[in-house]
Computed example of a mutant assay.
Amino acid sequence: MPEPQPTVLVLTALPLEYAAVRAHVEHRREDVHPTNGTQVELGRLPGTPWQVAIGELGEGARATAALTASLIDWLRPQAVVFAGVAGSLKDDIVIGDVVVGTKVYGIHGAKLTPGGPLVRPEAWSGSNALVQAARSAVRDMAGVRAHFKPIATGDVVLADAGSEIARYIREHYNDAAAIEMEGSGAAHAAHLSGQVDALVVRGISDRTDERKSAADAGGSQERAAAQAASVTVGALRKYRPRGGSGGSADSEENPQAVYGGDHIDFRGGTFYGPVIGKQTGRQ
C-alpha cells in the first residue's frame, strides 16, 4: 500500500519570500495549526517525491524558533529550509547572489566588559545532506551565483557598514557572508527536534549600507527572493527521503498524489487514512 508523501517544511518571513516559494508548489491546499493558528499551504513539488508545506512566519528569530518547533511537531517533516533575503557582508557577494548557510550564527551572545565584548557564540551547521544537495543543484543553474558560507542572524536591520554592530560582526564573525533575522531560530528548532535536517538559503538584496533603501525600492528584494526560492527548489530536487527510492514523483516508485478529503488518490491505487497536514487524525 502506498505511503503518504514525505514532507519538507519551507519557511519564510516576508510575503514576497513566501510568494517566490509558492510559485514552485502545485496542488496547494491550506491548513491551520490546531492550537496556535499558524497557517500553511501544503502541495507537491513537481518531479520530486516531496510534499511541501510552506509558511510565512514574520520577522525575528525568537518567534521563528517557537513557530518552527510547533510546525515540526505537527507536520513531522524530514527537513526544514528557511528561504528569503539577506544583506551581504562581503564585497564580492553582490545583489542577486545566493548564500547557502554552511553555518548559522546567533550573534547576540556576549559578556560586556570594560575591555570590550567577550563573545559567546552560538552556531548551527547546515545539514550535510541539504548542503550537498544544494551544491549539486547550483552546478546546473546558469543564472545563479551561489556561495556556501556562514550566515549571521541578529535582530537588527543593518543599513550602515560603518556602524558598531557591523564592526562587531566583522571582528567576531569574520567568515559570515550575509546577515538576516530568522535563520538561527529555524536552525535551533530543527536541532532541538533531534531528527530534522535544516538549511538556510538567502538571496542577497542589499549591501548592508546606506544604499539599502534604494536597492529595496528598485526591486532587489523580489529578485533576491526569487533566486533563493530557485536554489531551495533545486536542492529539494536533489535531496532524497530517508529510506526511500528517491526517484521522481512522476515515476512508478513515487506515484503522483492528489489530495482530497480523508484520502490520497495515487496512480494505481487509493490510500485511505490520515493525510499528512490534515487538521484531524494526523500521525
Rank of each mutant, 00 (worst) to 15 (best):
L118I: 10
T64Q: 07
R135P: 02
R139D: 13
K103E: 15
P114G: 12
L130N: 07
V100W: 09
R139S: 10
A66V: 14
L71N: 02
I95R: 15
A63K: 14
G106Y: 14
V80K: 03
A142G: 14
G109Q: 10
K149V: 09
R135V: 04
V99R: 04
L67D: 06
D97W: 15
P114Q: 09
Q78N: 02
I95S: 10
G101D: 09
G115H: 08
P114S: 03
D73T: 13
A146F: 15
I107F: 08
V119H: 12
W124F: 11
V119D: 14
D73W: 05
L118S: 11
P117N: 04
F148V: 02
S88F: 00
D140Q: 10
V144E: 02
I107N: 02
L118Y: 05
V119I: 04
P117K: 05
E122Q: 12
R76C: 06
R76I: 02
S70P: 04
P117T: 01
G84S: 08
A129W: 05
V85C: 13
V119G: 14
L118P: 01
A63R: 15
A134D: 09
P114C: 11
F82H: 15
V104G: 00
N128A: 13
S70C: 04
F82C: 08
V81F: 07
A133H: 13
L112T: 08
K111A: 13
L89V: 01
T102P: 05
A134I: 02
L67K: 15
G143E: 15
K90A: 11
A123Q: 14
A69Y: 13
V94R: 15
G101R: 04
A79V: 07
D73N: 08
S125W: 07
V81P: 01
D91C: 03
A142L: 06
I93D: 14
P114F: 11
A66W: 14
Y105T: 00
A123I: 01
I95P: 15
A142T: 10
Q132P: 01
V119Y: 13
D91Q: 11
Q132C: 08
V85A: 14
T64L: 04
A142Y: 04
V98M: 11
L71R: 06
I72Y: 06
K90S: 09
L118W: 07
G96Y: 09
A86I: 02
S88C: 12
V138Y: 12
T68R: 03
K149Y: 13
T113G: 01
P121R: 07
R120K: 09
R145M: 07
V80M: 05
V98C: 10
S88A: 15
A86K: 04
V104D: 03
A129C: 03
P114R: 01
L75A: 05
A83N: 04
A83E: 09
D92F: 08
Q78M: 06
N128I: 11
D97F: 14
I72F: 00
